[in-house]
Design a protein around this nucleic acid. Structure first.
Length: 219
DNA sequence: ACCCAGGGTCATA
DNA sequence: TATGACCATGGG
């Protein structure tokens, strides 16, 4: 039952919005940088920051290590929290020394261990770690974000405990372990999240709500 | 002027 | 384990 609901939502979103082509990055390292920079920030602001880094020739682990933290903060100014994020990017760059900056070496690590390693890096929490696992390492790991929680609650599928892992289990225990599916699904949830009204408990306008909504209403 | 964005860390209870 | 302050610019 849950599986059918989740697949129904997915297909409805895909029909309405079309493929999202995530992650919008050139390579895996740029993806990881973007994952940190986009924390609690709009992607358009992140794109400016990434362009700035590229122009400065700072879009590599080695360059990020060499760059003084204050200058790095300056380059990513537009993405907000620039001092905090500069420190996070430094931590990421130094973490990669362990793999000689070769991401293929990092991606050779099994999913569970790699997730733990990523969580050990300053600035990488569960969502960022799973984003890297899914969008850079192509592992079938479902990414949970604030939009996903709201939407799942909206359609009456919220788990009892509201922890990250509980939401993640909802998807991964009821859907096939398919990285392409998880990729598109998360991107579509974010797309919907950006478009629905956040000020009201029930949206009346999005493709899952209002007259077009065929899902169970949470009373 | 006010709210929040594709979160995470740290201190505190 | 679970909350709350904090990080900060930019667009609505």
């Amino acid at each position: 039952m849950i599986r059918e609901k989740l697949l129904n939502i997915y297909h409805r979103l895909l029909d309405h919005y079309g493929p999202q082509h995530w992650w919008p990055a050139k390579g895996p390292f740029e993806m990881m940088v973007g994952a940190v920079l986009t924390q609690s920030t709009t992607w358009t602001s992140v794109e400016k920051a990434i362009d700035g880094l590229r122009t400065a020739g700072a879009l590599s682990p080695e360059a990020l290590r060499q760059l003084p933290e204050s200058e790095l903060a300056n380059l990513i100014f537009s993405s907000g929290y620039y001092n905090a994020k500069a420190r996070k990017l430094k931590a990421l760059a130094y973490y990669l020394v362990e793999y000689q900056d070769d991401l293929d070496r990092m991606f050779a690590v099994d999913t569970g261990r790699l997730r733990r390693k990523l969580l050990g890096v300053h600035g990488i929490g569960e969502e960022t770690a799973d984003s890297i696992l899914l969008y850079a390492a192509k592992r079938p790991v479902f990414v949970i974000d604030a939009y996903t929680r709201r939407i799942i609650g909206r359609v009456g599928l919220a788990p009892e405990k509201g922890r990250y892992a509980d939401y993640q289990h909802l998807f991964m225990d009821n859907l096939p372990a398919d990285s392409d599916l998880y990729n598109e699904y998360h991107a579509l949830l974010v797309c919907l999240g950006k478009n629905i009204c956040r000020s009201r408990p029930l949206c009346q306008q999005c493709c899952l709500c209002g007259d077009a909504c065929h899902f169970d209403r949470p009373n």
